[in-house]
Amino acid sequence: MVSNPTRPMVGLSCKAATTKGPDYYKLLSVSSGCNASGEEIKRAYRAMALQYHPDLVCDPLLKEQSTKMFVQLNAAYKTLSDPVLRRQYDDSMMGLNNGYSYERRGFEVDRTVWQRQILELKRRSACQRDRSVSWGGRMRARNYSEC
């Protein structure tokens, strides 16, 4: 089963759909992990969607990243909101809990969490930038960007 380890598709960043890596519970920020109830998972997904859905990200520079993030959230939610897929996923995560695979998984988790933190920081700095500049400055920036 483990004989065919993750083979990245070179040149394409579709990894979220193909790798077995990320910890979906952490991705959705479900604190109680695999003990979480269905309702908790739904709630967590909605909260994360309100934060990362690209429609709610006004800065065009962050849209691309939030889109990637949201696609990952959906993959996580699709698995965890389906009782059968969730059990399979939980089992596979238990099974992978050793040696090489474990480290890989740990890396993936770190990477997604790290990505999310970066995105959140950028989002905040974008908001602050908006707030700290004067009204005139904002208008000038807007006119500038429309040219």
């Binding site: 520079l61 962050l62 691309e64 960007s145």
Partner: peptide, 23 residues
Amino acid sequence: EPIYTVASDSETTGEDRSAPIFP
């Protein structure tokens, strides 16, 4: 302001994204 776009695929569609869609 630093520009964070690095992915090449956003460049090809850059003309659509340069301005906010709903100013």
